[in-house]
Design a protein around this nucleic acid. Sequence first.
DNA 1: GTATATGCAAACCATTTGCTTAGCG
DNA 2: CGCTAAGCAAATGGTTTGCATATAC
Lengths: 149, 149
Amino acid sequence: MHFKKDIAALCKENGLRLTGPRKVIMQVLSASSDHPDAVELHRRVSEIDPGIAIATVYRTVNLLQEKGVLEKHTFGDGRARFESADHEHHDHLINVETGDVIEFRSDEIERLQEEIARQHGFTIVSHKLQIYVKPIDKKRPPGKGKETA
Amino acid sequence: MHFKKDIAALCKENGLRLTGPRKVIMQVLSASSDHPDAVELHRRVSEIDPGIAIATVYRTVNLLQEKGVLEKHTFGDGRARFESADHEHHDHLINVETGDVIEFRSDEIERLQEEIARQHGFTIVSHKLQIYVKPIDKKRPPGKGKETA
DNA sequence: GTATATGCAAACCATTTGCTTAGCG
DNA sequence: CGCTAAGCAAATGGTTTGCATATAC
């Protein structure tokens, strides 16, 4: 995750008050290198300040998403997951055996998408590409084969 | 949608009993050319047999997905949407202004995905590409910029 | 006849919201 | 001080499940 700008600046330029809960939540987001969901985020936040309500976590991440600071993803399981938006766009490989998420970027795919949208008379607002994968290594035990939804 | 095989055959080869509700649900699925969610599916099913419970719709559609007969998608709104799996793979353009879903296929993108997965030491289990778009037409008012989840 | 399906209602889970109080600017 | 935020709990929306009955095979 790791925000390029500092938290106070992010709040100020988005017209958000720099409150205690926000500081903690944004600090946790900034320190997270994975793509936590709201509940996991709340768990991490609670280790720092147990008094912060999960409703505040939801309100904060939604606010940050509206302001364009965060991106919201849904990788098949019901929950929404978040990551910083202040990086170059990338897509995700999801290891179905472990749930791990790997980021990648393909300019060629990006370009093809633009082309496809244009051919249909549209411009792209956003897009998501998720590739659900498993290790090539055949010797690995089957593991819990999560559904690919 | 439109199943290639007939409904009785689909049930039989998947070890499912050919019940009244299943006949109706699968018939509705087969007749749908869009990507209905469970509630919409239930609405259509109810026009034919008002006695069928939405729980049965959910159970049926999940069963068919497990058996590989249906694909389940989530296009950002909370609901799951379904379509037949017995066609060549394709991806989706989602018009954010209308919610319309347009199918497309790009062999080149498919190929690039294979390549990316392989480079990371994986094979593809499945993948989803959703391009959220709006009409090129500039004269349209800004509209409600729905979130891109 | 017996295991599988269904209907119904209650349960679930993630997320949102109304209301009141707290605290940033 | 005034208005935004937070906490809490109740509400929501989509989806699943337990249980008793019905039905396909």
